[in-house]
Measured scan of single mutants.
Amino acid sequence: DVEPGKFYKGVVTRIEKYGASINLNEQVRGLLRPRDMISLRLENLNVGDEIIVQAIDVRPEKREIDFKYIP
């Protein structure tokens, strides 16, 4: 289970102007929005990149997770 405040290694699977889709595994994925990137710009991400993200909002009833990137 993903817990708010914990850090996870994820893989960038899609990049859109509203954010990047991050997969932690086949069943768990979430969104990294541009506003939640401290020192990383969306255009510097590539599909397949592995990054460390922090879960900031977990809504299991909607199967949604928001991530934050902290270098």
Rank of each mutant, 00 (worst) to 15 (best):
P4F: 08
G30Q: 03
G30V: 07
G30N: 02
A55K: 00
R33Q: 05
G5F: 08
D36I: 05
I22Y: 02
R59Y: 07
K68E: 03
S21C: 15
V58G: 04
V2W: 06
V12N: 00
N25S: 14
V12Q: 00
D49H: 03
P60Q: 09
G19V: 05
L24M: 04
N46K: 14
I70H: 08
R33G: 03
I56F: 10
D66M: 13
G5W: 07
N25H: 07
Y18L: 08
E61I: 07
K9V: 12
D36E: 04
A20V: 13
I65S: 03
Q54F: 14
G30W: 05
A55H: 01
K17G: 08
K6E: 07
L42S: 02
P4C: 12
I70N: 09
R14V: 08
R33H: 07
R35Q: 13
V58R: 04
P60M: 09
A20S: 03
D66K: 12
V53H: 01
I15K: 02
R33V: 04
D49F: 06
E50Y: 14
K62H: 10
S39L: 11
R63A: 13
P4K: 14
E3L: 13
N46C: 13
L40Y: 04
E64R: 09
V11K: 09
E64K: 06
M37V: 05
E16C: 13
V12F: 02
V53M: 05
R14A: 13
N23D: 12
I38C: 12
N25Y: 07
V12T: 02
R35M: 10
V2T: 03
F7E: 02
G19L: 04
K6I: 06
I65V: 11
K62R: 12
V2F: 11
V58C: 09
L24D: 01
V28Y: 12
G10Q: 01
R33W: 04
R59E: 03
F7Q: 03
E64M: 10
P71Y: 07
G5M: 07
F67D: 02
Q54N: 01
R33L: 06
D66W: 14
F67E: 02
N23F: 12
R33Y: 04
V12L: 02
E16I: 04
Q54H: 04
Y8D: 00
E26L: 10
P4G: 05
L40G: 06
P60Y: 12
L32M: 04
F7Y: 10
Y18I: 12
K9R: 13
I56E: 01
R29S: 15
R29V: 15
L42R: 02
D1Y: 14
R35C: 10
L42N: 01
V11W: 12
L32H: 02
I65Y: 09
R35H: 12
K9M: 10
I65L: 08
L32G: 01
G48L: 03
N25K: 06
Y69G: 02
E16M: 14
E61F: 08
E61D: 13
E61H: 10
N23P: 01
L45N: 00
F7S: 06
P34D: 07
Q54A: 05
R33D: 04
G19Q: 03
I38S: 10
E26D: 14
S39T: 10
K68A: 15
R14P: 00
S39W: 13
M37P: 02
N44D: 15
P60G: 10
M37L: 06
E61G: 13
Y18A: 11
A55G: 01
T13V: 11
Y69V: 04
K62L: 14
F67Q: 01
V11N: 02
E26R: 12
I70W: 13
K62V: 13
Y18W: 15
A20H: 03
E43M: 07
I52G: 00
I65R: 02
R14D: 05
E64L: 10
I70E: 10
I65A: 07
G48F: 04
L40N: 04
Y18Q: 10
N25R: 06
R35Y: 07
I52T: 10
G19S: 05
S39F: 13
V47R: 02
I70R: 06
N23H: 14
D1A: 13
N25L: 05
G5D: 05
A55W: 04
R63H: 13
E43Y: 09
P34A: 09
G19F: 10
I51T: 00
L45Q: 00
D66E: 09
N23E: 15
L45R: 00
I22M: 01
L45Y: 01
R33F: 03
G30M: 05
L32W: 03
I70F: 12
N46D: 07
E64Y: 12
P4T: 12
T13S: 10
Y8F: 04
P4A: 13
G10I: 06
N25I: 06
I70D: 13
I22V: 10
G10S: 01
R63S: 13
E43P: 04
V11T: 11
R41T: 13
E50A: 09
K62D: 10
F7L: 07
P4D: 06
V58P: 03
R59I: 05
D57S: 15
D36L: 05
L40F: 06
K68N: 04
D66T: 13
R63W: 11
S21M: 15
D49M: 13
P34Y: 08
R14G: 10
A55V: 15
G10R: 00
V53I: 08
P34N: 06
N44S: 12
F7A: 04
E61T: 10
R63P: 09
L31T: 11
N44F: 09
L40S: 06
I70L: 10
K62T: 13
D49W: 06
A20K: 01
I51K: 00
I51H: 00
P71F: 08
R41G: 10
R29K: 13
Y69R: 01
V28C: 11
V11R: 10
Q54D: 00
P71L: 08
N44I: 06
E26K: 13
N46Y: 09
R35G: 11
R14F: 09
I51A: 00
L24V: 10
P34Q: 12
G5P: 05
G5Y: 07
T13P: 00
I38W: 07
N23Y: 14
D57T: 13
N46A: 14
I38P: 06
A55T: 05
G30I: 09
S39R: 11
R59M: 04
V11I: 14
L24H: 01
I15S: 01
R41L: 12
R41P: 04
E50K: 10
L24F: 04
V12E: 00
Q54S: 06
I15Y: 00
P34W: 11
R33K: 08
V28T: 12
G19A: 08
P34T: 08
L24A: 01
K17Q: 11
I22S: 03
K17H: 13
R14M: 10
V28K: 03
L45D: 00
D1S: 14
S39C: 15
Y8H: 00
E50R: 11
L40T: 06
R29M: 15
S21I: 15
M37S: 04
A55D: 00
K68I: 08
A20C: 07
V2M: 05
V11L: 09
E43D: 11
M37I: 06
K9C: 14
K6V: 08
P71C: 15
S39E: 14
R35S: 12
K6R: 13
P71A: 11
A20W: 07
V53Y: 00
E50C: 14
D36G: 04
V28D: 07
G10E: 01
I51V: 06
N23Q: 15
F7T: 04
L42T: 03
V47K: 02
A55M: 10
D57P: 03
I15E: 00
N23S: 15
K17I: 14
V2Q: 02
I56R: 05
K17C: 13
